[in-house]
Design a protein around this nucleic acid. Structure first.
Length: 362
DNA sequence: TCTGGGGTCCTAGGACCC
DNA sequence: TCTGGGGTCCTAGGACCC
């Protein structure tokens, strides 16, 4: 038995969030397959599935598949467009509850968060009770279910929240971390995606336990120093990253699918102008300045390319976004005379405008 | 067979400075 | 004529996440 002081971290993951929000707003949807879609606007059903409820998943409708295919799988399902405003306001309700119950809340996305509760609870049994109370409070006050993972670090907490879904709770005490991870598929390790997964399969590694048996030397040789070291540590359930309040976003972008593939600058300028305006509105709302502008181009082969310009000093004008986006688009097409399918505009290196910093308290 | 949109983090090469 | 190493910034791209 170890007497070390362990951190205790909760990862809260809202179940099939967008679809569950729609079910809350429209109770008549409950029990039916619900599919939330991102329509590209190219034709009536072009676009992809963003998320779906469990009834739809049973029919094979998963995030990322084309909408038309989802309609073939389940012609009678309910298809709805993404309503981000609704999801954001419901997300705020959830985060308020979490904030009130932990020492540090790190909101990871609109539907996920880490809660640091070290010091707030005496141990993992109390943490489990707290997690149950949180689930109940979110169900009562917000009307949604979530899944929670409780573990000694963020990596394992996140894997644990995904272990039992929906409406799940998985507690992984420090002494069972290794045993918990060992049988899981390599792709379940957060940070291992398709590319790394395929390469590991090539090395004959299928589970996290098998990965943990490879030597650090072997892994760094294969994946480079940083990634190799990370894989070695992660496979053993080691993660020292801190739960930290996120200080706002690092970049703001908008991307869209063109009505049809084109390299016509006039068409592209029209689109980048609109995207620039959207980006500008988001910046305005949060009183942010930016120091770089990026034009994003996705060609018909889905290859993703970018062109970035760094400004001399932080700026905040709409014209600066628009003009740079146009200039970068023109430069890009001069260098790559290819038809584009999607284009985007992004600003980054964001800073709060001088004098706009929120005052703490008087 | 056809494939959205919003992000984060990391790497690597070249420019430039000391 | 040949001659270092380190640091930072910029840019492009890749991998991954939801």
């Amino acid at each position: 038995m170890s007497s070390e002081i362990h951190r205790i971290i909760l990862h809260i993951d809202m179940d099939y969030f967008f679809a569950q929000c729609e079910e809350r707003e429209h109770p008549e949807l409950k029990g039916k397959p619900v599919v939330i879609c991102v329509y590209s606007g190219r034709s009536a059903d072009s676009g992809a599935v963003s998320t779906s409820n469990y009834e739809a998943r049973k029919l094979g409708i998963k995030a990322g598949i084309p909408i038309f295919r989802a309609k073939n799988l389940a012609p009678d399902a309910v298809f709805l467009p993404v309503n981000m405003e609704l999801y954001r306001s419901i997300s705020d309700e959830v985060m308020e509850i979490l904030k009130a119950n932990c020492s540090t809340l790190e909101q990871e996305s609109v539907d996920e968060a880490f809660c640091e509760v070290t010091g707030k609870v005496s141990g993992f049994d109390e943490a489990k009770a707290l997690a149950l109370r949180l689930k109940e409070e979110i169900k009562q006050k917000v009307g949604l279910t979530c899944s929670i993972g409780v573990a000694p670090n963020k990596l394992v907490a996140k894997i644990a929240s995904d272990f039992q879904k929906p409406d799940g709770l998985t507690v992984v005490k420090p002494d069972v971390v290794i045993k918990f991870l060992a049988p899981l598929k390599i792709i379940d390790l957060i940070g291992v995606g398709k590319k790394t997964g395929d390469r590991l399969h090539g090395l004959g590694v299928k589970t996290i336990g098998e990965l943990s048996k490879l030597s650090a030397e072997n892994l760094t040789h294969e994946f480079g120093k940083a990634k190799g070291m990370w894989l070695k540590q992660a496979s053993q359930g080691i993660d020292d990253s801190a739960v930290e309040v996120r200080e706002g976003t690092e970049q703001i972008g908008r991307i869209t699918t063109l009505k049809e593939d084109t390299n016509d600058l006039n068409v592209i300028f029209e689109v980048t102008d609109e995207l620039s305006e959207d980006v500008y509105r988001k910046l305005e709302a949060r009183k942010l300045s930016f120091k770089s502008v990026t034009f994003v181009a996705i060609s018909t082969d889905f290859k993703n390319r970018t062109k970035t310009h760094m400004l001399e000093a932080p700026a905040k004008g709409l014209d600066i976004i628009k003009e740079n986006a146009r200039r970068l688009a023109k430069l890009f097409l001069e260098e790559n005379p290819v038809a584009l399918r999607r284009v985007g505009v992004r600003v980054a290196n964001l800073t709060e405008e001088k004098g706009q910093k929120t005052l703490g308290e008087f």
